[in-house]
Nucleic acid binder design. Structure first.
Length: 112
DNA sequence: AAAATGACATGAG
DNA sequence: ACTCATGCCATTT
């Protein structure tokens, strides 16, 4: 198996997600753009799948799709764990989707 | 080796 | 404004 350059991409994504401050959220498109994949949104999602079980843990619950929808809540664990986490951070989540996304949106491109 | 799948995004109708 | 179709990259069957 190669697991070489692409692994580096995963690291980049993990790093960005770990940089997301509490109470803030980001989107796949933004991350994909940061790592250089303008339309590699799916790639970002796969990276987060791999993040499970790695160290340090990645707050993937802060990563949503362009709609602010908690697409990956099923991969987190039971029920609405992800949604509960976001609500605890102070983010209003309704029906698995984040409200006032513009207000909570954290753009890595802007920070980096 | 090829085809299908997947935690999405963007464009066109 | 909403829905359908296509593109993207890697992993898995």
């Amino acid at each position: 198996m190669k697991r070489t350059d692409n692994q580096d991409l995963y690291e980049a994504i993990f790093d960005i997600v770990r940089l997301v401050p509490s109470g803030r959220v980001t989107t796949y498109g933004a991350i994909a753009a940061v790592i250089g994949l303008r339309s590699g949104a799916r790639f970002v999602g796969h990276a987060l799948k791999h993040c499970s079980g790695l160290t340090p843990p990645v707050p993937a619950h802060r990563v949503l799709n362009s709609s602010g929808l908690l697409t990956g809540r099923h991969h987190f664990g039971p029920g609405n764990e992800m949604q509960e986490l976001l609500e605890k951070e102070g983010i209003k989540v309704i029906d698995n989707k984040v409200v006032t996304l513009d207000k909570y949106f954290w753009d890595p491109l802007k920070e980096l």
